[in-house]
Nucleic acid binder design. Structure first.
Lengths: 249, 249
DNA sequence: CCGTTCTGTTAGAGACTTCTAACAATGGAG
DNA sequence: CTCCATTGTTAGAAGTCTCTAACAGAACGG
């Protein structure tokens, strides 16, 4: 597998974009921004902000007279809005679609906002437009009659077909890796494990729609050896039985 | 609006993670990795790789004897797989769900993979599991009878209810910002513009489900002033008429 | 008016990644 | 075996962002 590397782009550095974003929000909130507040909002020292402001000012993003109030230029506002819009879009994706808490969603968005390309953003917006015409989709993945959050882990037990967790409840005849024989292969459909166990399986590369081949099936407590994405992995029985598969290529 | 900043994490730097990922793939492909190949794959000079290898070796991620073949330790493999899995998951999201080309999706994934939290990844996987049980959803957003790609811009004209672009075609009675009177407000449902015009509107913060207030409606060629997300924006008529809204809070 | 306190700036340093240029080791070809 | 080409390493420098420590300017109370 070749990794496609991002083509280098001549734009602003991430920290500087963060300063613009912060200033934009402070100005919106208080009408002005001050070094101390920017520092507090970004979690850095005032000295660092001072230096950043000089750079932003030289680059024409900030109107900045030493020791006076700080404002954004036209260009600065545009750049800030650009980043902030990405922030909001990503936040909404992680909270409204995936069901993360607003705070966690915003943190996650903060880490990703600088790198979201125009195209990806365009298509995400289109996806939101689409979901707007299909409210049942988000509802199905998301709200459950019990009121628990989208993507939550435990089945809610209402057995509603509108509830993702119910419709995701393992089918009676679902096969897990644990029941596969050496030489067999399957395609992952669901990982039923939760918590650290789930995370471990995911980190190993066991994702929905990936192919797994069983190489050696240890009896009893022995580990099960599988191949997945070209890697050879050892699974314990508890892990293996939480990976559901369907027969497949 | 408060921006939630990511809590600082004590893990590896992004460039070092990239080296691990690259080495992992090279080892999988050729059975070994060499400085020159790593440098080529990452687009840096050999000298830089040499220094990175020393660090990775000291940190216990790489088995590395000067001028000998390079391999990953157990820890190194785990870390590499962790990143690579995120890469693959994000790539699939951007290509399979949003319809980007595999190459663009992989590039985008590369920029985001290091910052995806465990929780977000967990929920994205859950979302994939869910979509696996609802193939019609992705199909509806994605494949169209004409075979054009998901998220594509032009309506395909088949008027199939299974085609997102058809079902997204502006309803007869859809209202655009351009027809709103000063004082009215609405909630954005769709941006019909394409290309640079669309990108401009998005970057200004005009996203689906955001509220817009019309402040001054210029006659004829004059700009229309709106408020959106706390910002005061001027739209030309062509821009305004491509933002569809529904009456709303 | 003077001193204290708050705010912002500068200087100097460290961590990180990358580069170029020069050097060292390895491996074949003759 | 020797020479040359390839491959990898080191030294030195630049650019980024950050910090601490020391300083300067402003504001306010007494």
């Amino acid at each position: 597998m070749e990794l496609a590397r991002p083509t280098p782009k001549a734009s602003m550095s991430e920290p500087l974009e963060d300063y613009l974003e912060t200033i934009y929000l402070l100005v919106q909130e208080h009408g002005f921004a001050r070094v101390k507040e920017i520092a507090k909002a970004r979690g850095v020292k005032a000295a660092t902000v001072s230096i950043a402001l000089r750079k932003l000012s030289e680059a024409g993003f900030v109107n900045y007279v030493r020791r006076e109030y700080i404002g954004l230029t036209e260009r600065g506002e545009e750049a800030a809005r650009r980043v902030l819009t990405r922030h909001r879009l990503l936040t909404r994706f992680f909270s409204e679609v995936l069901g993360m808490s607003p705070h966690a969603a915003s943190e996650q968005a903060c880490s990703l906002e600088h790198a979201l390309t125009d195209e990806a953003m365009d298509r995400m917006v289109r996806f939101f437009e689409f979901l707007g015409t299909r409210p049942s989709v988000v509802a199905a993945f998301g709200q459950c009659p019990t009121g628990s959050r989208p993507g939550d882990v435990e089945p809610c037990g209402t057995a509603s077909p509108d509830c993702a967790r119910c419709s995701l409840a393992p089918k009676e005849k679902a096969m897990s890796i644990a029941t596969m024989k050496p030489g067999q292969s399957g395609v992952v459909t669901q990982i039923t494990a939760t918590g650290a166990l789930r995370q471990r399986l995911l980190d190993m590369g066991i994702l929905p729609e990936t192919k797994v081949d069983v190489e050696r099936s240890g009896p009893g407590g022995h580990p099960l050896w599988i191949r997945c994405q070209g890697a050879r992995l050892a699974l314990r029985r508890a892990e293996a039985s939480s990976v559901l598969v369907r027969a497949g290529a």
